Amino acid sequence: MADPTTDHHLLAPVPDDDGAPFWEYAARGELRVQTCADPACARPRFPPRPCCPHCRSFDSEWRRTSGRGRIWSYVIPHPPLLPAYAALAPYNAIVVELAEAPRIRLVGNLVAAADAPLNSVPRERLRIGAKVQAVFTEVDGVHLPRWVLERP
């Protein structure tokens, strides 16, 4: 079992062929979103998939975002959803709406700094609409996007 006092994330992502570029860019500290490459469509999509759900084009590109967004929703699990997270409770899980692509929402954690533990932000600091910025931390060779408040 992972040591919650040293591990910042206990569930590791499992990249697939469609999502692999997302993790490759994250390793460079870039938050990119798959976007339809058909100029008539050009809509972003997440999660990544082979075909555009809007125009059915199979052409896509990965566009860099500013990494800025706002908290669209959040939860503080009571009790922790998995036993391995018990030592980190209370912690948050947030849904972030990206500034450049409001229909794109990513799940993560609000933390005080990239390498801070999941419980580093007091629950009273969480609020719907709060502006956040993506940061990245490496856990077991995978760079995970997390979120910090734009104005702490």
Rank of each mutant, 00 (worst) to 15 (best):
R64F: 00
V75A: 15
Y85M: 11
Y74W: 15
A87H: 09
A89H: 10
N109G: 02
W62D: 06
D115Y: 04
Y91W: 07
P50T: 14
L82K: 12
A113D: 11
S60R: 06
R68T: 08
A99M: 02
E97P: 03
R43K: 15
R70W: 06
Y85G: 00
A87R: 10
S60E: 05
C41W: 03
Y91R: 02
D59M: 08
A113R: 13
L106Y: 01
P53C: 11
E61N: 06
I104Q: 02
P47M: 14
Y74M: 08
I76V: 15
P90I: 06
S57H: 06
P83A: 14
I76C: 14
L118I: 08
L118W: 00
S120V: 05
A86K: 14
L118D: 03
L81C: 10
A101I: 01
P83Q: 10
A87C: 06
S66M: 05
A87Y: 04
C52M: 08
H54Y: 15
A116K: 02
Y85W: 11
L98E: 03
G108K: 00
E61F: 12
P79N: 11
R105Q: 13
L110S: 03
R64M: 10
T65A: 07
Y74G: 06
Y91V: 04
I76Y: 03
A84K: 05
P90G: 08
A116V: 02
A99T: 11
S120H: 07
Y91C: 05
E97Q: 14
R45L: 12
G108W: 00
A89E: 08
F58V: 13
P90Q: 07
N92C: 07
A86M: 03
V107F: 05
A114K: 04
I94V: 15
R70Y: 01
Y74V: 08
C41K: 08
P48K: 10
I94Y: 00
P47D: 13
A89R: 01
S120T: 09
A42K: 09
L98D: 00
P50Y: 10
D115V: 03
P117C: 02
N109H: 08
G108V: 02
P79C: 12
P44E: 08
C52W: 02
R105M: 10
F58E: 14
A114E: 04
I104L: 04
W72P: 00
R56P: 00
G69R: 01
D59R: 15
A112N: 01
P53D: 10
P83G: 09
P47K: 12
E61K: 14
A84N: 02
C51G: 04
E100M: 11
C51V: 15
P117H: 14
R45K: 10
R56K: 10
T65H: 04
L98G: 01
A87P: 03
N119V: 03
L82M: 15
P102W: 07
C51P: 00
A42F: 11
R45G: 01
S57R: 08
G108A: 02
L81Q: 14
P90M: 06
P50W: 09
P47Y: 14
A101F: 13
A101V: 00
V75R: 09
